[in-house]
Design a binder for these strands. Structure first.
Length: 350
DNA sequence: AACACGAACAACCGCATTAAT
DNA sequence: TATTAATGCGGTTGTTCGTGT
């Protein structure tokens, strides 16, 4: 037996909201609040034949004050992209980092534009590279030295398009993830994004045709692995209606950010190498800084699949960290401020 | 002008999680 | 502790609008 429907489907209106419905819902909530019960809400508003769920969605995504629609800035683009690669399609967490944006808005924006922008840039580079490789092959077949275009000899004179995969940061990933340290895993991420690659059927795995940090992908999958192994209840970051981000924990089994950094042995802020295809060629030293493998975009340390680093101490040995739990909030606040200065993104309330 | 197509966005649906009892 | 209902979330679908032919 399935669960009971949240409302009488036969007596609720579906489809786009009319301005009159918007006005009714908005004025009611502004006067009386939601009452903490969305299901009961529409029954209190005369003439509003909507499901409570629909009311909630309409309010959160459209009617709520301080909602921004469209006009995503370049900075927001970068942030969304960084976070997506870091934590995946956890739109509510991503939205928590973008004041005034809703998860639905960001999700739509990603699906309709950013994803294509990202893949498009990659494909452009791929095409350029193919042309370059083709040209070089032509030169070679005319009698010049036969060089593999990926050989060090060539790379000293002209950088091949295919980037060296970065040396993985010494994050103490588990053994079972060792197999993820390869190009195939990376390919899968972009395939997941909807990409199709010209060498999909080519047998040579030595030629990466995508540019993304292996450590980033490794981390993403690692997080998913760790989630399954995590014990205890999980609480996570929520965005209150007012826009504040609440700090949560996972069953009191947290460690401080600095401890995680020390445990992992890598820089707190890790460059998102390999994102050039998205950010453009001219980003130079202004590469997007992300939390990399050691921190999340938010302070959602307990988020079940967030971008947190989960060194072994977190995954398997939580003891000894309870006493520093209260330090976490302060350190998060400091880190948050560092990453997202108030003048740029507004204050993040912890 | 009519049509086809794709992009953008709003809304819905089902499932997982959480809270209340 | 088990059960039930509300809420939150992410994936998906439906609708509208703009553009090209």
């Amino acid at each position: 037996m399935g669960r009971a429907p949240c409302c009488d489907k036969a007596n609720v209106k579906k489809g786009p909201w009319s301005p009159e419905e918007d006005a009714k819902l908005k004025s009611y909530i502004e006067k009386h609040g939601t009452g903490g019960n969305w299901i009961a809400l529409p029954t209190k508003i005369a003439g509003l034949k909507r499901c409570g769920k629909s009311c909630r969605l309409r309010w959160l995504n459209y009617l709520r004050p301080n909602i921004k629609h469209g006009g995503f800035s370049e900075e927001e683009d970068k942030l969304i992209c960084s976070l997506y690669i870091s934590i995946g399609s956890r739109w509510s967490v991503i939205a928590a980092q973008l004041p005034g944006r809703t998860d639905n808005d960001i999700k739509n924006y990603w699906n309709t534009r950013l994803k294509k922008k990202l893949l498009g840039r990659h494909r452009n580079k791929e095409q350029q590279a193919r042309r370059g490789a083709s040209l070089k092959q032509n030169m070679n077949t005319r009698g010049s030295t036969v060089n593999n275009i990926y050989s060090p000899l060539v790379s000293t004179q002209q950088q091949p398009y295919w980037p060296e995969l970065p040396v993985l940061a010494p994050v103490p990933y588990s053994n079972q993830l060792a197999s993820l340290n390869d190009h195939e895993s990376i390919r899968k991420l972009l395939i997941k994004l909807g990409g199709k690659f010209s060498d999909d059927n080519q047998p040579n795995p030595q030629v990466p045709n995508i540019e993304i940090s292996a450590s980033t992908v490794q981390q993403q999958i690692y997080e998913q692995e760790v989630v399954a192994a995590k014990v205890g209840h999980t609480r996570y970051c929520t965005e209150e209606a007012a826009g504040g981000v609440n700090m949560m924990d996972f069953g009191g089994q947290s460690s401080t950010y600095s401890e995680q950094v020390m445990a992992s042995g890598i820089s707190p802020l890790q460059r998102l190498d390999g994102m050039e295809f998205f950010y453009g060629e001219d980003m130079g030293n202004d590469k997007m800084l992300i939390a990399g493998s050691t921190s999340s975009g938010s302070c959602c340390w307990g988020s079940d699949t967030s971008s947190l680093v989960y060194p072994p101490l977190l995954a398997s040995n939580y003891e000894g960290h309870l006493q520093v739990q209260d330090q976490l909030q302060g350190e998060c606040a400091a880190f948050q401020e560092f990453r997202y200065p108030e003048e740029q993104y507004g204050a993040v309330h912890l």
